[in-house]
Design a protein around this nucleic acid. Structure first.
Lengths: 260, 260
DNA sequence: TAGTGGTCTAGACCACCGT
DNA sequence: CGGTGGTCTAGACCACTAA
């Protein structure tokens, strides 16, 4: 049960003898951080649950509370964990109001909160991964994937069409029926049903002309300009677990972004 | 010269008497952070220069070095400052290789580094601010603004057309000629010539059809889908100092974004 | 070697939450 | 009230840079 301080993981640097290779120096708090991420990967604490207190973790890892604190600071900054003063530290989830639709950057042009999204599943099937999808998800070409097509509407207006690919082995039992019965963000569904937490995503945006098929689903003219968003989502440990291509009607909505 | 510790700024909370209004508690390190930002606003330290050491600042503000450190931590996370171990802490600049074109999110589809941008100034004039621009820049409608139009090319291919509005009173003496003689990112130019540092920006993205005029400048077909990027840029203290609308050809380039 | 930022510790106390 | 995270301090030592 008890774990010992990972002293060995610190590359020793004797003063007189420079290291053969330029071994990267890794401070203690980063090693602790890695250990916490490993616990998240193993599912020791589930999304929405609290993790042990800083004091308990300090005892477990045989370091000071301040060192654990610095590790958790970084994980909280990366939104893997969420601190709540007086209550504890919690595993981030896509279920709570504040973090629901965290990755949906579409906002109405007039600043009102905007209607909440309604999702309609158009298609859901299992097939062998095309080359580009298997590359993005780091699968072998031909591995099974689940392929979903859905339409998001705001206030009854179809606005987004998403094509989503997921590794088949991680999403066993995912069907159009199970999807249809679910309310709320897809990533919350993935957490609850498959124990997979999306923590980060990389997107590539461009403007494209609507294909006849897409135009039909969105009630737009063929050739209308659409914002196309290709996304790879990652779970703990930078493992890619979703590839999707969204096409957004941006007549009354825009994609908001902050540069820092 | 010497400044005293701002003890008064901490809202006192006597145990027996709850505060009349819910006065926001502001920790010391945030007050220090504000003082540092004020020094940046005043231009006490210019972009690229080093600020005093943590030790010196601790003495100046009459707090411990750890408290100054935490203030600087946040400013470094927000890219207002840049730490360099063994050398000091520096005011962030758009001149250095690592931070040049920090706000340009366009990347080539094939991952090569991509040619560096060449900028061609199409137009530069002074006029009275239109209503939407004056609103974005928090000016009075009718205040003087500088209006720039330019084309960015990569490897000789026109790819971006930018329309840029700047408050006239902050950019006195800005002309097409002074712009034409400058190499490098526009924000570096603003730093050097006008002492204005862009530290943050908010963008709204959508897909639009190219107008005949835009299509002409980009060598594209009228009606071609373009990625339109509206941006408000801010300097220290969240003061908006630039509004721009970019239109990007995304045939061979895309807008990259990371979600966290 | 001196000066900078970076790490780690230990302890005190504050703010917030639930019981 | 006890337990949690949040702040602040003081001091020791490490890593990196430049003279």
């Amino acid at each position: 049960m008890s774990e010992t301080r990972p002293e060995q993981e610190i590359p020793a640097r004797s003063p007189g003898r420079p290291p053969a290779a330029a071994a990267a120096f890794s401070p203690l708090y980063r090693q602790i951080k890695s250990l916490i991420v490993e616990s998240l990967e193993r599912g020791e604490w589930k999304a929405g649950e609290s993790i042990p207190s800083e004091f308990d973790l300090a005892a477990r890892f045989q370091v000071s509370q301040g060192t654990v604190r610095k590790a958790i600071d970084e994980l909280a900054a990366e939104h893997l964990l969420l601190r709540r003063q007086g209550k504890g530290t919690f595993v981030a989830t896509h279920h709570e109001p504040r973090t629901r639709y965290r990755f949906l950057r579409l906002a109405p042009d007039d600043d009102g909160e905007g209607e909440r999204a309604e999702s309609r599943i158009v298609d859901c099937r299992r097939l062998r991964a095309p080359a580009d999808v298997s590359r993005a998800l780091e699968l072998r070409s031909g591995d099974a994937v689940v392929c979903i097509r859905r339409v998001l509407s705001f206030g009854g207006v179809p606005t987004v069409i998403d094509d989503i690919w997921l590794p088949g082995n991680l999403f066993k039992g995912l069907t159009a029926e199970s999807l249809a019965g679910y309310r709320g963000p897809l990533y919350g569904f993935f957490e609850s049903e498959f124990g997979i937490n999306m923590v980060r995503a990389d997107e590539k945006l461009r403007a494209v002309a609507a294909s006849p098929e897409t135009a039909e689903l969105l009630g737009a003219a063929p050739g209308a300009p659409l914002l196309q968003v290709e996304r790879v989502s990652y779970t703990y440990g930078d493992r890619p677990v979703e590839w999707r291509r969204g096409q957004y009607l941006t007549e009354r909505y825009h994609y908001r972004n902050r540069l820092t």
